[in-house]
């Protein structure tokens, strides 16, 4: 699948934003401190920027509001509805933290749950597609949720350390989620790389009873919408290397940096946690790029010899 820049930015940013908002909703951090207030603003800004980025790949973005109507059947519509609905508790929680300096538990917890639901809907847009076998597994939403939680606790540990309270707790939980997320992702990758294709040229043409089916001629000499959108192959050559780099940058580096923050503490903690967030975000972008670039669409059985 073609890794559209706007969708990678959207899933990465909104994942981090929803993760942070969900952790803030738990009320672990001291809402009266400046850094936690800034964290609330940051979470909302990341979510909003992610959602705006997602509209960039639309052919007719002026009609985007229509996407809120089909929540009965469409995961994309559900995601849109949840994204907008979750702004209500998130904004209320942020308002109380920023203006009154206190945590509103009910709105906070509602926000946490709705953040989780929104990320789940995002993941199910991909996870529900049978035509893309790599995505069509329960591991897809699990990975998205774990990555969001890991990113949320990583960002929360920055806010915690700079506010002077609960930094080590957030960092410790972040380590657990980062490790869990990459274990889940590793399982996802193992499944992808050992997958027997669900659809084959034989089943796609129904000619398997005669023999082995091979493409002789494409419909047209040049590329078309389908081959550009579904036939992206650039990453496959380096997929293994890139996935290792993603684990190093998004998994190993943040864990080591957070351990430094926990053990060293003091003035070293904040820069270490900030650096951990950057490494994690970089790893996540690579992971998201591979998520699209490595996924093979069933229609390519009609286009590949």
């Amino acid at each position: 699948m073609h890794p559209a820049f706007s969708i990678i930015v959207f899933t990465t940013l909104s994942g981090l934003g929803y993760g942070l908002a969900a952790v803030l909703g738990l009320g672990l951090l001291d809402a009266s401190t400046l850094s936690v207030k800034l964290a609330h603003i940051g979470a909302l800004a990341m979510i909003a920027a992610g959602l705006l980025a997602s509209t960039l790949h639309l052919g007719n973005p002026q009609r985007a509001w229509r996407a809120l109507s089909q929540w009965r059947s469409s995961w994309l519509s559900r995601e849109g509805v949840m994204a907008i609905a979750s702004f209500v508790p998130l904004t209320v929680t942020a308002w109380f933290a920023i203006v009154e300096g206190r945590h509103l538990a009910v709105a906070g917890l509602a926000g946490t749950l709705m953040c989780g639901a929104t990320v789940y809907c995002t993941a199910m847009i991909y996870g529900s597609l049978r035509s893309i076998q790599a995505w069509n597994t329960g591991l897809t939403p699990l990975c998205y949720l774990l990555f969001a939680a890991a990113g949320g606790f990583l960002l929360a540990s920055v806010a915690g350390y700079s506010s002077g309270s609960r930094g080590p707790v957030c960092a410790a939980i972040a380590i657990l989620f980062v490790v869990a997320a990459w274990i889940c992702k590793q399982k996802w990758w193992t499944r992808l790389r050992t997958l027997a294709p669900f659809s084959t040229p034989e089943s796609a043409t129904g000619l398997g009873h005669i023999g082995h089916v091979r493409l002789f001629e494409r419909p047209h000499v040049n590329e078309n919408y389908l081959t550009r959108e579904m036939g992206f192959k650039v990453a496959r050559k380096h997929a293994l290397k890139l996935s290792r780099l993603a684990i190093l940058s998004g998994g190993l580096a943040p864990v080591l940096l957070l351990l430094v923050a926990i053990l060293a503490g003091g003035s070293a903690a904040v820069p270490a946690a900030v650096l951990a967030v950057f490494c994690y975000a970089l790893g996540l972008v690579v992971e998201r790029w591979l998520f699209f670039a490595e996924a093979r669409h069933a229609v390519m059985t009609y286009y590949e010899g």
């Binding site: 790949h57 049978r130 959108e229």
Partner: peptide, 20 residues
């Protein structure tokens, strides 16, 4: 009503839909 998100083309295993 189409916003051109392309998800229906992704969901079709046959490549029957093309975005103009």
């Amino acid at each position: 009503k189409c916003i051109g998100c392309g998800l229906c083309a992704w969901s079709c295993a046959y490549g029957a839909r093309e975005m103009d």
